[in-house]
Design a protein around this nucleic acid. Sequence first.
DNA 1: GATGAATGAGCATTCATTCAT
DNA 2: CATGAATGAATGCTCATTCAT
Lengths: 207, 207, 207, 207
Amino acid sequence: MTQVSKAPPPTVKGRDARRRLLEAGKKLFGAHGYAGARVLDITEAAGLSSGAFYRYFTDRRELLLVLLDEILAEAFEFARAPWDDQHPAESVRVTTERYFDFYDRNVALMGVMVELAQTDPDVREIWRKSRQSFYTRIAHALSRGAATGAIRDDIDVEVAAELLGSMTEFYAFQRYALNGDALKDVSAQDAAAALTAIWSHGVEPKK
Amino acid sequence: MTQVSKAPPPTVKGRDARRRLLEAGKKLFGAHGYAGARVLDITEAAGLSSGAFYRYFTDRRELLLVLLDEILAEAFEFARAPWDDQHPAESVRVTTERYFDFYDRNVALMGVMVELAQTDPDVREIWRKSRQSFYTRIAHALSRGAATGAIRDDIDVEVAAELLGSMTEFYAFQRYALNGDALKDVSAQDAAAALTAIWSHGVEPKK
Amino acid sequence: MTQVSKAPPPTVKGRDARRRLLEAGKKLFGAHGYAGARVLDITEAAGLSSGAFYRYFTDRRELLLVLLDEILAEAFEFARAPWDDQHPAESVRVTTERYFDFYDRNVALMGVMVELAQTDPDVREIWRKSRQSFYTRIAHALSRGAATGAIRDDIDVEVAAELLGSMTEFYAFQRYALNGDALKDVSAQDAAAALTAIWSHGVEPKK
Amino acid sequence: MTQVSKAPPPTVKGRDARRRLLEAGKKLFGAHGYAGARVLDITEAAGLSSGAFYRYFTDRRELLLVLLDEILAEAFEFARAPWDDQHPAESVRVTTERYFDFYDRNVALMGVMVELAQTDPDVREIWRKSRQSFYTRIAHALSRGAATGAIRDDIDVEVAAELLGSMTEFYAFQRYALNGDALKDVSAQDAAAALTAIWSHGVEPKK
DNA sequence: GATGAATGAGCATTCATTCAT
DNA sequence: CATGAATGAATGCTCATTCAT
């Protein structure tokens, strides 16, 4: 893994410039993809000369990694959110809704991450870790459920966790990233509810 | 959408050259991603001069579109495969296994498709269509199930179809494309079985 | 000067193919200029494969030289047309009209000649010869006129010939080649008459 | 018509580089024609790397348009020079001499303009405008002459203006551009005088 | 800190021409 | 005679990155 960020700029002006570059990068990478956003575009959007870029980042790529770090930190955040063992379904629903919301706000960058992941092992790894944290959390919940008999015992929790996580992530991805501007006739709430239903019934023991 | 292929070469030699370019493209795009495979690499791998490329394709991109057309044709194929209403779970399992196998064979290109989809609307559309054909098939099956009481009636078939399809596709994607060479400690068969279980229980009516 | 044409094709079919290439060349060079007409365009327009071109011409350039030879032959033709010393003005007018007509029919190629002349010494020479033949003819006429007192004696016949020839040629060039599709509100006949008037008065002795 | 120049470079160094490219372009286009001068030649002659070119011009063609603008500005200049109605012949002579001088200094580029005009409508238009400004000026002078009886009344001033302008321009063109290094045995002064004579006698009323 | 000029490797693409069939 | 596949040199252009000011 390569170095991810230079020392933070000592002056206010510097920190501001860096911030503006990050914002511009977020906007332009989001809008045109990694391949489609040039350093010059980014510095222009940030109101800086192209040379200034390299005072703050070693690379176009580095800027992206910083951005990914930032948004994935938020994701890690609620992968650690409390899980109410008394009302597992409700926990799932709430998390799912939050996740949809998160995705909605960050689609553009998620898309770029997906794009780069095909070519860049570091990005692939970053993404894997983020997914993993979700899967692990789900697996934990399932394990506890298995222990208390709240879920079926003919299930491999690891696999189930990956499956359920996949369902959530990819549904969000295609809902927000791929289907473009196609109007969704189902609200995010309803989708979260449906997902929760399949989830719960999918894993609970036969009555 | 742009035209995807020229008139086929009239001579055997020509058809052969075109085929070699496609193979080379498949290999190199797969190995290094879209951004990482240059025309020159492709022609070299095909044993041709760089100029020859443009007799058969207008573009690096066009070659990729042709490749996607080819593999997605296969996918469409078994999206149309018969569905046994008597044993829906078995149908799901069989299709899933076939799908995993298909994915295994075509990961590389699927990855490239995902990469390009972030930037290229045509590719996004191609992918959307292919997904759609799966979702539609699933939705049909669910509808029939709903009619016969084989599935719960508090479910929006469209959404459920997208969710179940998402689970399958993305699980396959991350299993084959993202997790790289990490050994899978769960066989594709077992994963397909688990997926089928969640699937079935997720949608069947409460007992 | 380089070789200008290969041996004529022995068969009828061959001669026909060569002719078709010449026609196609005339059309395409005329329409898109020398730089804008590719060998492939020409052979396609002639209904032949690109390889066939080189059976009849060594070069794209050679085909053009042949075309120029053909049309300039016609120009030489009426540079040799009889000149009526009794009615010099009428001679001028008739020749001018014929020249305008010739130009009208061959603008496209004249334009190509002008284009290539900037770069290609051979073409420059071809053009110079053709101009020269006109100037010479005019100079001869003027000389005879000088001898009989029909024209002013304070005139350098050589220079006058070049000037009068220039006026004719360039007026035709800009009328047909440069002003494009702009409607001419003056007929070729009227222009020829005006030119003749200036010509005659310009050189005749003061009354 | 496309935009002809970008914002001028903000620094001295930049303006200098741009200027050097223009000079180099003038020299090389002049020497080898438009088709014969590559961007690389120009940047090399200007002592710059090939990439630098594109900071100042979008195109080889754009650089040429700028050059044409520059020299044609001078031409426009003396198309606006005062005209002495008392001594029209003298006015013609003076202007003609100046024009010959101008042509002598700018032949090379005029040739390139002629070359490109065959293919490029913008260039054609630029040239047309420049010619037009001359023709218009001549037509004005002739009109005033017609009013005072200084010229024959059986003349269409518009056509006469085009004819007289053509004579001047094309004589200059062939004298300087086409006849190459052939020694002129007639001085520019003498040629201007002869042209003026034909001109004057050509349009003055019969005595 | 910031600027913008300069670099130059890198790549796609074109097209006249050759040649095996 | 004709075809069309193949060549490969040639060239325009891009853009990340460096650096003098």
